[in-house]
Design a protein around this nucleic acid. Structure first.
Lengths: 337, 337
DNA sequence: CCTGAAACTGGAAGCGCTTCCAGCCTTCCA
DNA sequence: TGGAAGGCTGGAAGCGCTTCCAGTTTCAGG
């Protein structure tokens, strides 16, 4: 028999009855609240064990007006943008931080219109205690919804044209500048860039960093050649750049995936890396270590991004007033530059 | 002014009052239930719009005993196992399928003991309408919990030593066999394998497939050299194998990451791929396309895995009785073999 | 032994929504 | 025109838990 396996969920009432106390006392015991005598506390604990009681989170949520969950919303046209390992790492960080606060993680991939409507519902119905919002593009309707939401919202990266109250970002500008400076310090003077989508703040900031470094060194920045952060877009952009600027001797790409694509194109064209062309990526994902040659890149604390977003959200939920955060990046030198 | 932004959430009672009907009628309208006259239905809809009313999901959950959420649980010692893009793709598939059923996705990374306890709680407290369980290792306590759970559980891949009632798996055995057969058909006779962890069913099945193909071709299978599916473990295993079996001319690796690692080791050792050694991976992740040379590999429908798990779960939640599913794999030939 | 404060206790009122059910009102046919 | 059938309606009873509050008990201090 042991602890009888109740086929029906037992309730707090049953626990209270078995323990010979009122429901209020039982509730207080479960919540570690004061004003319970030692004897009754133990009686309740025994009953809980005996019944295999587990509180019903929904009922608790209704009574406390706290759902016990936080949502991570990833916005974007193409759902497979999310398959990027980048997000997986963000999730790992966020998940760990939320676990510490005993919050569940809900994941919303707002790709379709339908998905976006669900997110709106979530925000307005308080279906979660707070929301982390990522990858907002220019004019993303989600941004407005978030501003109007009555629950805490933390942005991951700053959306273009908005200046959110709470966000965690990565020092994209500084990282891009450092990468470009490094290329220049290597003696490269004809440094181009494959930047990310210019309708994202990430894309813009990384291009600005490149510009800054070029100008500071007295070099003329090349116009942006944009990709969408994917390998194939990087390969295509590299081909275009090679055709347009055959003299180039350095490339800063705004993502490792694009960097890998660039490497592929250069290899296919018979240009040696780093001898003929030095290449630097951004992100420091696994692909940077695997590519041939391994990619010099700007490391960003991706897991840290998720963790800090979650922590900031938890702070907000607890009524504190955290300040925005910009996480540092750092150059990791490998063989490609 | 437009649709007044109520600073307090409006309730169904308020909607009913404004529409001049009872709460029951209002509820029926919101749920598209019958027995509501056209006039009242419209009155309620007007009131909803006017108040900007959004139903409270928690209250609804309590009343219907349905949470409106499904959980995806990923088990494993190391939380970063999850950073594998594999899971990201599973999530994309699952998310899409759940969206169709209007279910939210909860993500649980059960790495720590604490995480595992939370999952147990989730299962026992019916904190979700159903659960998808992935990456269970031998003797994973989660497996037992799942069997005892009173909510629908779908396994992603079959856990070692268990024969779950509902699961979606990939044809690992067939894929591995096809890969090995292909190497043999290329004239390779000294084919080794870098298999995955042998305490996972995936690892075992892929090794078995290799064995089958070797035996069927009258060749003696080499003993398993195990990695943990990561790039570095693949590199290490390749080094060990090269030392032990310098005669080898073909390698089947149980993951693309390990395949990439093997390529790296071979390159560093000056062995040409595919001339000296042909290499085949498994998974068909992005890395297989990016590696040099691009990796011939066994494609598995990762997103499909997530999608089908979610569909099966939805079917179970709806009281249907789906049958287990084994998704096909297919060889994708590239330059490495 | 009395008094007031402090510590407990349990009744009861919610949290916001669904759903059963009894009664009402149409509608339509004989 | 009467009456049965059936569509509508709203009252009320939950769903399982938290929490306020008033009442009771306990106990140190006088």
């Amino acid at each position: 028999m042991a602890q009888g396996a109740p086929n029906r969920q037992s309730t707090l009432d049953e626990v209270a009855e078995l323990a010979g106390v009122s429901r209020s006392v039982a509730s207080r015991v479960l919540n570690n609240a004061p004003h319970v005598s030692r004897a009754k506390r133990e009686a309740v604990e025994r009953a809980v064990l005996r019944l295999g009681y587990v509180p019903n989170p929904t009922a608790r949520a209704l009574a406390t007006r706290q759902t016990g969950a936080a949502a991570l919303v990833v916005s974007g046209e193409d759902p497979s943008i999310f398959a990027d390992p980048f997000f997986a790492q963000v999730i790992v960080g966020a998940s760990a931080a939320l676990e510490e606060a005993e919050l569940h993680l809900m994941l919303c991939l707002a790709a379709s219109d339908r998905g976006r409507r669900r997110v709106e519902r979530l925000l307005r119905s308080k279906g979660a205690d707070g929301v982390m919002l990522m990858a907002l593009r220019e004019d993303d309707p989600l941004a407005r919804m978030a501003e109007e939401a009555e629950i805490p919202v933390v942005f991951g990266g700053r959306p273009v044209g908005l200046d959110p109250r709470w966000y965690v970002d990565v020092d994209n500008l500084g990282g891009a500048r450092a990468a470009t400076e490094y290329l220049i310090s290597l003696g490269r003077t004809r440094v181009v860039t494959i930047c990310g989508r210019l309708d994202t703040e990430v894309g813009r900031a990384r291009y600005r960093g490149y510009q800054d470094a070029m100008l500071a060194a007295g070099l003329e920045p090349y116009p942006p050649e944009a990709g969408d952060f994917t390998e194939s877009s990087g390969a295509a952009a590299m081909a275009a750049l090679s055709a347009r600027h055959p003299e180039l001797d350095g490339v800063f790409t705004a993502s490792d995936n694009m960097g890998a694509g660039a490497l592929r194109t250069l290899r296919d064209a018979g240009r040696r890396v780093p001898v003929d062309v030095a290449v630097i990526g951004f992100d420091d994902l696994a692909v940077a270590r695997i590519s041939d040659p391994p990619l010099t890149t700007v490391h960003q604390p991706v897991e840290g991004l998720g963790r800090e977003m979650a922590r900031m959200l938890v702070a907000l939920i607890n009524g504190q007033a955290p300040t925005p955060l910009i996480l540092p990046t750092r150059l990791v030198t490998r063989a490609s530059a």
